[in-house]
Write a protein that binds this DNA or RNA. Sequence first.
RNA 1: GCGGGUGUCGCCAAGGGGUUAAGGCCUCGGAUUGUGGUUCCGAUAUACAUGGGUUCGAAUCCCAUCAUCCGCCCCA
Length: 412
Amino acid sequence: MNKMIKAQKGTKDILPVDAEQWQNLEFKALEVFSNAGFQEIRTPIFEATELFARGVGDTTDIVNKEMYTFEKSERSLTLRPENTAGVVRAYIENGMHRLSTPVKLWYKGPMFRYERPQAGRQRQFHQVGVEMFGIKEPAADAEVILLAVNYLKSIGLKDLDVEINSLGCPVCREAFRDNLRKVLKPELKNLCPDCQKRYETNPLRILDCKVKECKNILQKPEIQKIITSDYICEECREHFNDVQKYLDALNVKYKRNKLLVRGLDYYNRTVFEITSNNLGSQNAVCGGGRYDSLVKNLGGEDTPAVGWAMGMERLISLLPEVKSKKIKAYVVSNFTIEALKLTEELRSHGIITEFDMTNKKFTKQLEKASKVADFALILGEDELKNDSVSFKDLAGSKQETISRNEVFSRLN
RNA sequence: GCGGGUGUCGCCAAGGGGUUAAGGCCUCGGAUUGUGGUUCCGAUAUACAUGGGUUCGAAUCCCAUCAUCCGCCCCA
């Protein structure tokens, strides 16, 4: 035998047994998002590397160490690690700011990140997500969060935890960042190496460091004072309060998590995450927030936006397994032409039908039928003479001979 | 990039140095000759991740590599 070629590390085949689950997730997405006025957009799987560097942010891990980048004709291209940047690019490039506001889009598809695979993490994985452009008001944040909750409900996931926070705007966040740096400076040497880097690149991320020493340092009163202070400015606070007011009115349960800091640079104001306790350490099924400056940063009109993405593999791992549907009817006959014709006729009536193509012995065909189908339709010499069919319920042992026409009503 | 666990047929597995490496499931073939789901027989024509080493002898002990899983980082 030749050497086996295997699926690459961190990639998986989605086999027929799983396909039904995937189809259901996709179908429900179409249904729920359309209902809320979101339209599907499909963007390319690879884009100019620069799009992600500028869009996602060049201090992020995603851009720094996780991108699948390759050169072709002296262009640097990258397999998309997420889809917000791509959707924003398409929004700008296609002049979608001229469409009536808001522009509401959703997408699904594979994303690629070069990381060590583990539970709930693959190198090729799938996300479903929504983006809404053109609305700066907090109602947009609330609608988008509600949509996430509704989608999860529609696929059968309830009781997940919604956490929200506000990162403030560039102005107030910068002030907070400076304060944080100031108060952390004396402890800089005692922070873990990662946090020492974060101190430079994104000090907010130090807040959710899991290293014990860092956690202890953060407990110091003078540091706590900064962390717990409501640093965001008046306008940002009002925005955030409204978001919460709307969510309350919509009966969306959430927790405020002051340490929630998302890893992508483009977020401002509202950020949120939806997590589950049943996922191991990769516990987020949904992450998102507002990104009011991204469209402008990527060369478009200044356009506020808010959106989220969910990891489809993680959703599926939370869902109970489904048994695949059985074949409805199995035609048992040694008259191949007649079996073919009856099968085709049943299928044209929308009945899932198979017949035995190998023309095996009667008992063998019936044995097969009992394994894969609900009903056997026996078409032998006698039945052919009378233009009838023997209709056998394979769950029990009832069998009766009925006319051809009756078959369809029995099976519907 | 860093830590830890695990690799025996398509799947689940037993065996922890000694002649043909159990068993179960699935699949396929056969027996019961127009009646299946039970039973019985048989097959899957060289399955111990790979490469070294120790040994008279290795699936079993050692080393390396690879794969996979779990955790860190980060994210969905």
